[in-house]
Structures are given as structure tokens and as C-alpha cells.
Design a protein around this nucleic acid. Structure first.
Length: 116
DNA sequence: CGTCTGACGCACG
DNA sequence: GCGTGCGCCAGAC
């Protein structure tokens, strides 16, 4: 196997890296990540990649990624539906009815913050 | 190779 | 403002 090091070229790895760059107490959306990668219409793949990220050895703050509405749509993939909420609340993020409160304030856009 | 699915996003009614 | 339907890309079967 020669070049399996092209992680950077892999869509999934990009998602992982960007997600890991999400600062504490901040969240982003699937579309934002997808847009940062270059596939704004591939938001679904971001979520899918994050799902696989749960199996990754390195921890990926997938709980900091929500949909454009700020809803914890992926909470069910954390095993317990409360896990994602707990993690977010642990970061001073207010959650109400599986929705992030003050979403605009905690929103973190990689395309903007990373200025890419 | 054809078909279905998926942690979304957007257009439409 | 809310519910429904379609499209998007990539992978699994």
C-alpha cells in the first residue's frame, strides 16, 4: 500500500480535521463544514463522516456539529440521546428541546474563522 | 453496474 | 412559521 497518506484528500478526513478545530464552547453546521471542504451541497456526507468518526481512535467533537437550524439531529447516534446534549451543556452551550439556544452566538464557521 | 441509504439543505405549498 | 418533497455526493450491498 503506497499512498494511503492522502488523508487530506479524503472527504472524511477533512471533516474530521475541521471538526477537531472547532473551539471549545462553539458549534458549527454540517453545511458550513461541507462548504469549507468545497462541497456545500454535500452536507449529508459531513454527518455521515462524523458518524464514522465515532469509530475513530482520536476523539472528534462531533457533538459540536449540528444542522443549520441548531437542532441536535445527530444526538441519536451517540448511543444515548442525552449524550450530545450533555456534552454541549458541558461547554456552556444552552440546549432547549434538543435545540441550541443563542445558536448565532456560539456558531463557528470554519470558512470564516479559518479564512480559507 | 444499478439501487438504496444517509447526523442535510433548500424550494415549494 | 411549519410540513413535505427533492437534490446533493459518496459509500455499501
Amino acid at each position: 500500500m503506497k499512498n494511503r497518506n492522502r488523508e487530506n484528500d479524503n472527504f472524511f478526513e477533512k471533516v474530521y480535521q475541521v471538526t477537531r478545530k472547532i473551539p471549545y464552547g462553539r458549534v458549527t453546521s454540517y453545511g458550513a463544514i461541507a462548504r469549507y471542504i468545497g462541497l456545500p451541497q454535500a452536507a449529508r456526507m459531513v454527518g455521515w463522516a462524523l458518524n464514522k468518526s465515532l469509530s475513530q481512535k482520536k476523539f472528534v467533537p462531533a457533538h459540536r456539529v449540528v444542522n443549520q437550524k441548531g437542532l441536535l439531529t445527530g444526538k441519536k447516534h451517540f448511543g444515548c440521546s442525552n449524550t450530545m446534549k450533555e456534552l454541549l451543556e458541558n461547554e456552556n452551550i444552552i440546549i432547549d428541546n434538543d435545540k441550541i439556544q443563542n445558536f448565532e452566538n456560539v456558531f463557528w464557521d470554519p470558512c470564516k474563522e479559518l479564512s480559507f
